[in-house]
Structures are given as C-alpha cells and as structure tokens.
Design a binder for these strands. Structure first.
Length: 833
DNA sequence: GAGTTTGAAACT
DNA sequence: CAGTTTCAAACTC
C-alpha cells in the first residue's frame, strides 16, 4: 500500500481521465499485484457520469454517514465492485487485520490502477480522517465493536464467486468510474456501504449488509448461507440502512423513477420477503415488529372487511389507532407510517420492549422495541438481503431477493412476526406465511385470550372504559367474545371511548403507555424457539411504576412486574419481593453490569441464583447477568446458533412484545428497539445517512421512518440487542453504547414526551422508581476513554431510560396532539361510575 | 364454574 | 400523598 504521501492529492478528475490509465504500465503492474481481475462485464451500473461527488473531507469516520448522501450511486456501486474484487483477492485468510489490509491493498491497487493517482486510494485508506481502512475499522468497531470483525469475513468465497460471476455489472466503465470516484475523494464513504446503492448492486448491497453482519456470520460459522441476526445487524446497521437495502431496488428503481416513495408498498413488498426466506432456507433472524404489527392491523382490518362481521377484537379503527396502547386518530397516521405496536395487554405490560421499542440495549425502547435488523444471505446465485427495522413504534421489513440471472428482484413479504411483548399483539392472523411466523401451537393462550391471541376482558362494572379493562387499556375495542357487560368499548361508542381515554390521559399522560421500560431486550431460548413467547423477558426491563405487592411476593401474576416478566426495581413498593426476574434492589446490579464488564462478577452470582429459581427463565437471566457480553438476547444467532433452522421465527418471538418489541427486536427489535436494534455507535453514524438515502428513495414511509429513527434513534440505537454481544471482545466501551442509545433516547424521546405531555411531572413521578435507580455509577474503572464522566453518564442515561418512551416517538404519531389533548372534553357519559 | 385473593386503578 | 374503595384478573378449590 502506498503511503498517503505518495499518493497525490485527490483530484476531481473525471472518469475519462482515468481511462487512459488502464493502459498505462502502472495499471498493468497494479493489476498484476492485485489478485483480482478487474471486472469488465458490460456495465450495468447506472452511472451518473456527470456527477462526481466532490472530495470529502472526513473529519471523522462518524461523519461518513452524512457524507454518504453525497455519494453518487454509481460511485458507490463501483466501489462495491471494487470491494468485491478486493474480497475476492482475499481468499483463505480471514485474519481480520489481514483482511482489512488486503482489502485496502486491493483497493489501493485499484486506485493505483487509476494511474492518475490523483486521489489515490491510499488516501482513502490511510488518510486519517477518511481513509478506507479507518472507515472500515471504524465501522467494525462501531458496528460490531468486534475487533475481529472483518470486512472480508462477511463474504464467502462462494458468494464472492457468485457475485462476480453474477455481476455482470462491472464494466470497464464501472472500473473507471470507480477510479474516478476514488480519485475524486469519495473515499471514506466507500466504506461503509453506501446505503443507497442502487440496484444493480444488489451484490453490493449484499456485501454491505454482509459487511455489517460479518461478525454475526463468523459467529455462525461460514456456510454458504450467511445468516445474520437482525438484532445484531440492526444494531450495526442503521435502521434506515436496513430499510434502504431492502427496498433499495424499489427505491432506486421504482421510487427513484417515479419519484414517489411508496413506503407502504415497499414495506409490503418487503414483507413478502419472507417467502424468500422460506424458499431459500435463508436464515434470518430479524425482529420484524413493524411488519408484524402492521400485519396484525392489516389482518384485522382485512378481517373486518372480509368478514363483514364484527371482529372478535377490533381496534378503534376510525378515529383511533392503537399505538403503544394509545389510540391515535387514524388521520394522524399515514398509511406509510408504521404503527407502533399496540401496547400490551391490560396492564400495559405489553410494550415492554417496545421498548426497544424504540429499542434499546441500553436502549429504552420505550416505544416498543425497536429493532433494526438486516440480514443478508447469499444462496448460490441468489443474494438475499433482508432487513428489518422495528421501532417500538414502527416496523419495517424488507427483503430483497436478487437473482442475478435476470437481475430481477423479488420482494416477498414476510412479516408475520408479531410484536413482542404485547400479548394482544400476538398475531392473530398470522395469516402471513413465513418462517417468521411462530407456530400457533406455541402461542400460549391465556384463558382470557381469544383465539386470535388477544385478550378478552370480563369487565362487569367498569363498562370497559377504565384501565381495569385490558381491552381498553390496550387501546382496542372489546371483541365479541369478551365477556364484558355494559361494554362501551366498542366502535359504536367511539366518542365515548375517546373521551374517556383523554380523561384518563389527562390524569396520567402515560396511563396508556407501556408500563415496562425496556433497557435491554432479552430473549430466552425457549422464546427463540417459539415455544413460549410469554417468557420473553427484557433483561433490564422494569416496570415504570413498580408494583406494590404485599402478599404475592411478586411471584404471581398479581404482580405487574412479574406478569411482565421483569424484575422489580427500587421503585417498587412491594413487600417481601421475590421476583424471580429480579428482586428489588437487584436492578442496580444489573445496571452496573451494563455499565461495565467489571461488574460482571457481581452479576454472576446473582444470575446463578436466578437460574435456579426459574429454569425456563433462568437461561435468560444467565444471559443477562452472567454473560455481560450477551446482553443481547435478541441475537439468538450468537447464542443459539443451532436455532438457525427456525429462521426468523426462532428469533423473533412474535408473540410478545414484540409480541411487542421483541422482535424485537424487535430488537428486539427486538425490539431498540427496534426493534431496532442497533448498534448504537454504528447506527448512529450510519443512520443519518440512511435517512438521507431513504429520501433518495423517495419512500416516504421508509424514509420517514428512518428519519424518525435517526432522530429518535434513541431507542434502537441504544437497543441492547445484539451489539452488546459483539462488543464483548471489542474495546468499544459500553459507555459509548449507552451514550448512543441512551443519550439518544433521553434526548429524543423523553423530552418530547415530557414536553408534550400535559403533566410532565406526573410522568416523572411515574418513572420515579427508575430515577431512583439512577444510582451513581459503580465505581468500576472504565477502560473507556472518557471514563471520568462515564459513570455519570451512564447513570444519567439510565435515568433517562427510565423515562417512558411512548409511541409518539415515532414519526407517525402525533404524540403531542394526542397527549396534549385537553381534557376539556366534557365528562364522559361513561364516567359515571 | 364459583368463590377467594390480590393488587392496580380510581377515588377521596 | 396516603388511605379507602372499586374493580377485574389471578388464583384456588
């Protein structure tokens, strides 16, 4: 590799200029050096010859995302090609360092080829700010935080070969363009996967995805198939990116052409991707909350329409859309908007993760879980990329199946994943096919649950207009099979319902908000298997208000904490707490754990105890406490590689939170998730860009979602999901993670809510328990660079986490509108009790 | 299925 | 904020 100095400053030379270079001796020399043969197939790339992104100055790798937007598709594609070539060059060696080096080398070579040597690749590679290498490293660090994470590792030879074989795209032009771009100083951007790459580059896309997911892949072992945990990926990749990838084709081709974004359509298309899954045996583990949710809603609506009969359970269709337990006026929601998962069952516990909802490994998904997940699979000639992003509030899933032969892209929707954490969200319909669907048999039906998985209430005196009523609390209409009496929670009494709801909210703005705040999404193995989603437990999730159990010792469902599968916190006023998910006072330990690995010891003991307590859940605890590195239950891939067969299903417990967030990922995505998940750092860096890209795509929905996510990335980024696991070996400070996730969460989510909410104080109060947790950092010294304030930050972050994130976080929601709604409404006729 | 227990929600 | 009442789910038999 040439030293940067040797390489001349980047120039804006045009591709035309570079052309001559190929013939030059230097070029030949370089070619010889590089194992890779320049691809010269007819160029498929859609080039924007005239558009040369100006040289970018990379102050820091993190800026990359923003810069990407500037990247032209063509350039990006070309870069992709190059990357592929470079990858090819790397054969057996998977030493990370070597790979990177090789990659760089190859790139450099390619650059050199461009005899112009104007902006040599070297710069990219070596330039402090924008070098490719750095970028890659950064990416790696950021995304996986796994030092081992290597660029090359993501792609397998077979894939590479396939890609090369299949990629007719790289024509001389492409190469030249590539060079040109390199020269022009695109450099840093190359790195990371230009979210917006266009179609042609499905391969490229795949690569990108793979790159991000490489860590996962490694974990999984290298097979032809690459499976990436959504959560992991999600963390690594910005939700937006994920979306982008998926819909890339759509965006670029269709949307770009039309100039319109058809978010919903895209999503729908994306959803179809499940098929691809099945057919290809692709292993995908994604939290597809949004989709699930969307599906659920869709199913319901469909059901309504199709049946013409009263659905067993109905959302408040017209005026209200249930979002995270809240009813939002439909009109406020765009079709494109992804609805947050309805908040959980009666106790609102459902949205635990949503928490990830908005995810949050460290994220609070106050919104349901947020997850962003991307999975890329290469199967023979086909390349699939699957990405899902879920927010607590929104889900997006897209799957692209690329078949090189015809370059046709097939979008399949798969999305049956139900939202985790929300019992009510349990998909009823699951009419969607897909591996993602959890087997119905696995769903645990409560006696109070209807066939569709939604709870049925049995109210006799509350008229189903109080929070006593699970249906009402969940923001849904009572179903015919409810046993309630004098029920006013029906479409016929829509106004009453709304008024009552408003009234309740005026009293407690978060009355309909998820009761459980998820800090970390955790999934027990059983859940991953789909055996018992109900066991889905956010490791760090806690009940916002805490319980007051006196006799049940928090060991029965009387206890909301227990019911939500979360541990009690200091905020609980329970007596004799023996909550198997975490007793009062233990939460701090968990936090410590999160704060630093150092705390692991403490947690270990704790975990051991818990394991004994509940076998089914013990595993979960074990994961959480025992293995700090495995904070991300959401990424079964790592933990449960064997479950791959289950595919997405295994991953995402659809039933719960993600039946809420979980998948949350949801991410759990679930879900931070969203579900949603995310790598915090990586996501952060990337997200913005992806947003931009999405804009490119014109997909309003997706774009908006992405943007929203980026804005409120909080959840997802913070999502505890996968990244944590990856961080294990990495030097990436958890702190950073928290910072991203939590800080974001705090900043983005909470403030809005608080602002919006008429009674912020109440909110605080509700969260007060969490605040207590804010306990100061545990003194473990951090390796983190910014150790001094790290603890404080962490504590602060936690606190923020505690703050409930609500549906409003999602772009679609007008939280303000809803939340702020004045109580002016006259007394409900219902209120009478 | 009826009755009891329990704790959250609602009320004062 | 605390105490009481109301309520419906969870639980027991």
């Amino acid at each position: 590799m040439d030293s940067p100095e040797s390489s001349p400053p980047a120039s804006t030379s045009n591709a035309s200029e570079t052309a001559p270079v190929e013939d030059s001796p230097v070029f030949s020399y370089i070619s010889n050096l590089s194992p890779l043969q320049p691809v010269k197939s007819s160029s498929v790339t859609q080039g924007f010859p005239g558009l040369n992104s100006p040289p970018l100055v990379f102050a820091s790798p993190q800026l990359i995302p923003h810069k990407r937007a500037q990247f032209s598709r063509t350039s990006f594609d070309k870069l992709q090609v190059r990357l592929e070539d470079s990858k090819n060059s790397v054969t057996t060696d998977k030493g990370h360092g070597e790979q990177n080096i090789q990659l760089n080398t190859s790139i450099a070579a390619s650059t050199e080829k461009s005899s112009d040597s104007n902006s040599s690749v070297d710069e990219l590679i070596q330039s402090p700010s924008g070098s490719c290498e750095q970028v890659l490293e950064d990416i790696v660090n950021v995304d996986s935080s796994d030092p081992n994470f290597s660029f090359d590792s993501t792609i397998k030879k077979s894939e590479r070969n396939d890609q090369l074989a299949n990629a007719p795209t790289c024509s001389t032009e492409t190469v030249e363009n590539f060079r040109h771009e390199l020269n022009s100083g695109i450099t840093g951007e190359l790195a990371v996967t230009h979210p917006f790459t266009c179609k042609e580059t499905e391969d490229a896309q795949t690569e990108l995805i793979l790159i991000n997911a490489s860590a996962s892949e490694k974990a999984m072992g290298q097979g032809d198939e690459v499976s990436v945990n959504c959560s992991t990926v999600g963390t690594e990749l910005p939700a937006n990116n994920a979306v982008v990838y998926r819909s890339e084709d759509n965006f670029m081709t269709e949307n770009a052409k039309t100039g319109q974004a058809a978010p919903l359509d895209q999503s729908s298309h994306l959803l179809t991707g499940s098929k691809a899954f099945q057919n290809r045996g692709v292993r995908r583990r994604c939290l597809q909350f949004e989709n699930a949710q969307h599906n659920i809603i869709s199913n319901r609506l469909a059901q309504d329409t199709s049946d013409g009969e009263k659905p067993k359970t109905r959302f408040l269709e017209t005026p209200l859309m249930p979002i995270d337990g809240k009813l939002y006026p439909q009109n406020t929601l765009n079709s494109s908007i992804k609805l947050p998962k309805p908040s959980g069952f009666g106790l609102h516990l459902n949205s635990i993760l949503n928490t990830v909802q908005a995810g949050s490994a460290a994220t609070i998904n106050v919104k349901t879980a947020q997850w962003d997940c991307v999975s890329a699979t290469t199967d023979g000639n086909t390349h699939e990329t699957h990405a899902c992003a879920s927010d607590g509030s929104s889900l997006s899933l897209a799957t692209n199946v690329v078949e090189p032969d015809n370059n046709s892209v097939t979008l399949n929707s798969n999305s049956n994943q139900s939202i985790l954490g929300n019992k009510r969200n349990t998909e009823k319909g699951s009419g969607l096919e897909g591996t993602n669907n959890l087997s119905p048999k696995k769903k645990r039906m409560n006696t109070t649950e209807s066939d569709d998985g939604y709870k049925r209430c049995n109210c006799k005196r509350s008229k189903c207009l109080k929070l006593y009523c699970d249906c009402f609390a969940a923001g849904i209409y009572c179903a015919d099979d409810c046993s309630c009496q004098e029920c006013f929670n029906r479409p016929d009494y829509e106004e009453t319902v709304i008024e009552t709801r408003q009234k309740i909210e005026s009293r407690d703005p978060f009355a309909f908000a998820p009761r459980v705040v998820q800090h970390i999404i955790e999934q027990s193995p059983s859940v991953s298997r789909g055996e018992d989603r109900s066991n889905f437990t956010p490791a760090s999730a806690r009940h916002k208000k805490g319980c007051k159990c006196k006799k049940s010792m928090c060991l029965k469902k009387y206890c909301e904490c227990y019911q939500a599968n979360v541990g009690c916190s200091d905020g609980c006023r329970c007596e004799g707490c023996k909550n198997v998910f975490g007793q009062k006072g233990e939460y701090g330990m968990a936090k410590v754990f999160l704060a630093g690995e150092d705390s692991q010891e403490t947690t270990d003991d704790l975990s051991a105890e818990k394991c004994e307590i509940d076998a089914s859940r013990s595993h979960t605890y074990h994961i959480e406490f025992v293995n700090p590195n495995n904070l991300t239950p959401l990424t079964p891939a790592f933990q449960f590689p064997n479950h791959e067969k289950d595919g997405s299903a295994a991953w995402f417990p659809s039933g719960k939170h993600f039946q809420s967030p979980e998948s949350g990922l949801t991410y759990a995505s679930p879900y931070a998730m969203s579900s949603a998940s995310h790598n915090i750092s990586a996501n952060n860096a990337v997200i913005p860009e992806s947003s931009k890209e999405s804009r490119h795509g014109n997909g309003n929905t997706v774009d908006e979602l992405s943007a929203a996510r980026s804005r409120s990335s909080l959840v997802w980024q913070g999502s505890p999901i996968t990244p944590m696991a990856e961080f294990s070996g990495s030097k990436v400070p958890q702190e950073d993670v928290f910072e991203f996730g939590l800080s974001n969460t705090v900043q983005d989510d909470t403030p809005e809510i608080l602002k919006d909410s008429p009674t912020p104080l109440n909110t605080v109060k509700a969260n007060s328990p969490n605040r207590k947790r804010v306990s100061p950092p545990h003194g473990q010294p951090h390796e983190h660079t910014s150790s001094s304030s790290a603890d404080l930050r962490i504590a602060r972050k936690f606190i923020l986490k505690a703050v409930p994130s609500f549906p409003p976080l999602t772009p679609c929601i007008d939280s303000k509108t809803l939340a702020v709604q004045p109580d002016s409404s006259p007394e409900n006729r219902d209120d009478n009790k």
